[in-house]
Amino acid sequence: KKIKIKIKVYNPETKEVLELEIEVSEEEAEELAKKLAEELEKKGYKIEEVEI
């Protein structure tokens, strides 16, 4: 079964909002969402919402 992940991120420095969407297997979904959120935060983005 495929799971659709939508991530909306906001960069306070540039006032930019990015929306990302990807489909992955159920097993990958939670781990991938967690890794993406961590990487984006390292780059200065503030995570507003992660929906699985």
Rank of each mutant, 00 (worst) to 15 (best):
K6A: 04
E26T: 05
I5L: 09
A29M: 03
V17E: 10
A37F: 14
E27D: 15
E27R: 06
I3G: 10
E51N: 13
E30M: 06
I7M: 06
K46R: 06
S25Y: 14
K43D: 11
V50A: 01
T14G: 04
E16G: 08
V9I: 06
K15P: 02
K6W: 04
E27G: 15
T14H: 05
E51R: 10
E26H: 14
K35E: 06
E51Q: 11
K1G: 07
V9Q: 00
E31C: 06
Y10P: 00
E23T: 08
L20V: 09
L32N: 03
T14Y: 08
L40P: 00
E31P: 12
K34R: 13
E13H: 13
I3E: 02
E19G: 12
I7F: 15
L32W: 05
E30T: 06
E26Q: 09
K2W: 15
I47M: 01
V17P: 04
V24T: 11
I7V: 04
K34D: 05
E51A: 09
K8Q: 02
I3F: 15
V9A: 13
I22W: 14
E31G: 15
E13N: 09
E27T: 13
E28R: 12
S25C: 10
E19A: 12
I3T: 12
E48D: 03
I7R: 00
E30I: 05
L40D: 00
K15H: 09
K6N: 07
E38S: 07
K42G: 04
K6C: 05
E51K: 12
E26K: 05
E38R: 10
E21R: 14
I5H: 01
K42V: 01
A33F: 09
L20W: 06
E13D: 12
I7Q: 00
L20T: 02
E39T: 03
P12H: 04
E39P: 00
K8E: 01
K46M: 11
L18M: 06
K2F: 04
A29Y: 03
G44F: 01
A37I: 15
K6L: 05
E30P: 14
L36F: 12
A33R: 02
N11P: 05
A37N: 02
E23Y: 13
L18D: 02
P12V: 05
E38A: 11
K34T: 04
K34Q: 08
V24H: 05
E31H: 07
A29I: 05
K2E: 10
